[in-house]
Nucleic acid binder design. Structure first.
Lengths: 335, 335
DNA sequence: CGGAATGATTGAATCGTTTCACGTGGGGGT
DNA sequence: ACCCCCACGTGAAACGATTCAATCATTCCG
């Protein structure tokens, strides 16, 4: 059996294609009897609507694309999950694209998405190199919402989380537990998240008179955390707590400490960032700064649809959320 | 600025639309001078090809869809990554769909994908309820490759991994290290992966005369592993090793053991399954049975394109890969 | 009973590409 | 000078769904 079109259905049901279209799109405008005949024909032929044709006519697709830095990163999967229900209920379809932090890949994806005339776009750009292309999308009436990146002067809406405040939360938590010597692990500083979190942490430490040691020449993964901890343990009097720029680094830190027989949290406390599922799943469950990820996605989708609805007269909004601290065993001790 | 079409470009360059199309698709067939003029017009107008129209004409899209049970699961993200390069180089585009183990979601996705006339489909179906629809896709000339599911009698190609053998590998590894009392943690047995791994494990244990205790009424996640371990520790003489149906369970086991002050691997060894990144990242790096995930994806894509190329005369193939054991600290001790 | 209002259906135009059968003009071979 | 071929371009016909003005058949009302 081969694919059949509306014309085939129309012929089989003895009506015109216009009527078939009506059955599909405005069933209330078609007589009961006719409707039945058409539906029977559809079932018999196994007819499936051709979305390309429909989109061509409509001028745009129903796809909302989400371009993320890494699909394997729980942060982004949660953002996607947050956005999905809203897009769904607006009759849209979510397409997830993984740029893999690769500018060239990102460019290619954007190109394809533009060719597909997507309804809108949520994106965490790899860096500034796509700015131009994103503005062009907006020019072509494809609204863009930036996720986890400030919009700055760009003509887009954005949703983000206050990383400086997140840094404050972590440091305050440790200071409250009596720590006076804290290590910050995460790099490079060129990533705004990394430097913002450090800034917040520093602010609180200075205020409280705590010593702060920053290990910023590490990569943001497990190996980075492990290495930094090893470096740290070589200090004459190592800090009694570490605050890590994300949970992968924190897991690495935990591993490094465990390997060297340092007890967590008794001899060294750990705070991570992101509160990924594996933070709670660690041998010693990790305290972590949680970002409202799902809400980020939900709000991003909301802004997108607002922009679609309002059209030209739309004013861009930049929404900033506050993170919260989740305390677990890795900091569960008072000095 | 609004979106411009080929016609606009043609007008601006003083040629016919056919020529514009040629510049885009068969540049060698058009004179240098003309080509330059057209390209200039394209740049000036910011023309972007309309994929809907292209697809409509072509009768199919360039999209290869991959429907997975859970995008957040590293198993699937690696499968996707394995498939991507191949699809890319074939001029295709990968679309990832997350069924979230929800049959209704899966149905909806398949519906949409069929409407989009995807080029082909790699899928790990939630259960048997989509069998019918998948066959229909094949009927409609959309090739389907099953991932991590045997094709059985269905008219599809498939790629899978030998789970029984994986169970054997894990058990043999433990037996070789002198363990004579082993626990298997994972459930429910209705999942073929769970029961196959147990079967392989049992086979080796019986052969070696080792005692095997199976905890099969747990869910396949961290909490499940933790609970099973707690149950296990209440036994009069607990096993000295646990083999977990997947790494999440193993991480839970590690957490449970750590909480109860049981040293890993000295007092209890652990083997996981899947070798997700977090296995190596655990406080005590976990030994695990690794599946050739990327290769699974790559091969699946290969089979798909073979089927596309061969058309009607295609014979379905069912490829089965062998897993391998990765030894790490969690089993690094001889009794 | 004529005419208007209502309801159901039709037919054709349209969206933007691709493709292919045809021009058209210029060169080369004989 | 003739013919043929080649290289370039053209124009129009698809592809399949949506939309809307136009048509046809009823029913209702005065």
């Amino acid at each position: 059996m081969t694919t059949s079109s509306m014309k085939d259905v129309a012929r089989a049901a003895g009506v015109s294609v216009g009527t078939v279209s009506n059955v599909l799109n405005r069933p209330e405008a078609v007589a009961e009897e006719t409707k039945r005949r058409v539906q029977a024909a559809i079932a018999k032929l196994g007819y499936v609507r051709n979305d390309s044709a429909r989109q061509l006519r409509a001028g745009r697709s129903r796809n909302v694309a989400i371009v993320v830095l890494d699909v394997a990163n729980p942060f982004f999967t949660d953002v996607v999950r947050g956005a999905e229900p809203l897009v769904d209920s607006a009759g849209g379809v979510v397409t997830v694209c993984d740029s893999g932090e690769d500018v060239r890949r990102e460019q290619r994806q954007l190109e394809i998405l533009e060719e597909q005339r997507v309804l809108g776009l949520l994106i965490t750009p790899v860096d500034d190199s796509s700015t131009e292309r994103l503005e062009r999308l907006t020019d072509h009436d494809i609204p863009v919402v930036l996720v986890d990146r400030g919009a700055g002067l760009h003509p887009h809406c954005s949703v983000a989380v206050d990383d400086v405040h997140g840094g404050r939360l972590a440091a305050r938590h440790l200071v409250e537990r009596g720590h006076t010597s804290i290590a910050y692990i995460g790099g490079p500083l060129s990533i705004s998240q990394v430097s913002d979190r450090l800034a917040g942490c520093r602010e609180v430490c200075e205020e409280a008179g705590a010593r702060l040691e920053a290990f910023t020449s590490v990569s943001l993964n497990v190996a980075g955390g492990r290495q930094a901890v090893e470096q740290m343990l070589r200090l004459p009097s190592p800090p009694t707590a570490v605050f890590c720029a994300n949970d992968l680094v924190a897991l690495g830190a935990l591993q490094g400490l465990t390997m060297h027989g340092v007890k967590v949290p008794e001899e060294c406390a750990i705070v991570g960032y992101d509160d990924i599922d594996f933070a709670a799943a660690a041998a010693v469950p990790l305290s972590s700064v949680r970002q409202p990820r799902a809400q980020l996605g939900r709000t991003a989708a909301q802004l997108l649809f607002e922009e679609i609805a309002e059209g030209k007269g739309h004013t861009h909004r930049n929404v900033v959320f506050q993170p919260e601290l989740v305390a677990r065993a890795s900091t569960d001790v008072e000095l």
